[in-house]
């Protein structure tokens, strides 16, 4: 009788344990499904709270964590909430097949947010794949990011030494090479020359930097105030308050124009660089979007 009772409790205990594990597993599965439901319905605050609870539970399969991070990241990405998207996408581990997509998208976000260094670190940590195209993609993205960072040596090294086979990557690499040439051709005009030209004739410095509209506006404004100041000087004398006011105003505009011309040299350069950077960004985004969609 005692033996029977012992056997009963022993068997019952094993079943209990199994049932508990099974019930936990079912609960995690259901929690996971619920989080996906919340994120697909853009109920992000609630999805985050539920995800936090799931992650804190004991014995949750890592697969669930990765899946939750991936799905939340993708939904945030689709909603253009890139900071949150990045946080979840970089948390996806390499145990799951969507690891590559998650990390490439995170890299994309970094590149878009001008965090090229962080994107390079992220791409360098991506595991080598058995799929040759994925490895090519990694090298291509790194090349693009080095170009964005103006690290021409690394760009040249990657673009020339790596044997790219994929036609799409090859096509975009050609574009990157063109942007590389453009980047190197963006000349720095002299702020001194721009300022001197504007000192000789107000607005001429802006013609030198290529801003003809601004040049005309500067010339007319300075000219008109100058004429008014001259009229006051001739008719009312140098000591008259109105003459002092208009002469002072003319001086302010004249010096401001020289300063503006000198500064605009740098601004024009930055504008051109930004345009080229945007083109590079588009080029490095195209293969990622094509491969993973």
């Amino acid at each position: 009788m005692k033996i029977r009772l012992l056997i009963f409790f022993f068997i019952s205990g094993i079943f209990d344990l199994n049932a508990q594990t099974a019930s936990d597993s079912t609960r995690y599965y259901n929690d996971f499904n619920f989080i996906i439901h919340l994120s697909k319905n853009k109920l992000f605050t609630e999805a985050e709270q539920e995800a936090e609870k799931l992650f804190a539970a004991n014995g949750v399969n890592e697969l669930y964590k990765d899946s939750v991070n991936y799905f939340l990241g993708i939904e945030y990405y689709n909603e253009k909430r890139y900071t949150e998207a990045r946080k979840h996408l970089v948390a996806v581990s390499d145990n799951v097949f969507f690891y590559y997509k998650a990390h490439y998208l995170a890299g994309n976000i970094d590149a878009e947010n001008n965090m090229t260094d962080s994107a390079i670190v992220n791409y360098n940590t991506i595991e080598e794949s058995t799929n040759a195209t994925l490895n090519e993609l990694k090298q291509f993205e790194l090349a693009g990011l080095y170009l964005m960072n103006r690290n021409y040596k690394m760009f040249d090294s990657l673009s020339q030494n790596y044997n790219f086979q994929n036609p799409l990557i090859k096509e975009e690499l050609e574009n990157l090479k063109k942007y590389n040439i453009v980047e190197k051709k963006i000349k720095r005009k002299s702020p001194f020359i721009a300022g001197t030209l504007s000192a000789i004739v107000p607005g001429l410095g802006k013609v030198y930097t290529g801003n003809n509209g601004q040049a005309l506006a500067s010339f007319l404004t300075c000219g008109l105030i100058g004429v008014v100041a001259a009229e006051n000087y001739v008719k009312m004398g140098i000591k008259h308050p109105q003459t002092i006011f208009f002469t002072g105003l003319f001086g302010l505009f004249y010096i401001g124009n020289i300063w503006g011309s000198a500064v605009s040299v740098q601004l024009v350069k930055i504008e051109k660089q930004l345009e080229n950077k945007h083109n590079i960004l588009v080029s490095i985004k195209i293969p990622i979007n094509r491969f993973f969609q």
Binding site: L224, V227, V228, E231, N232, K235, M236, Q242, F246
Partner: peptide, 11 residues
Amino acid sequence: YVGNYITAATA
């Protein structure tokens, strides 16, 4: 009145 026609016309 004081003959500052340009000043009057602009400012």
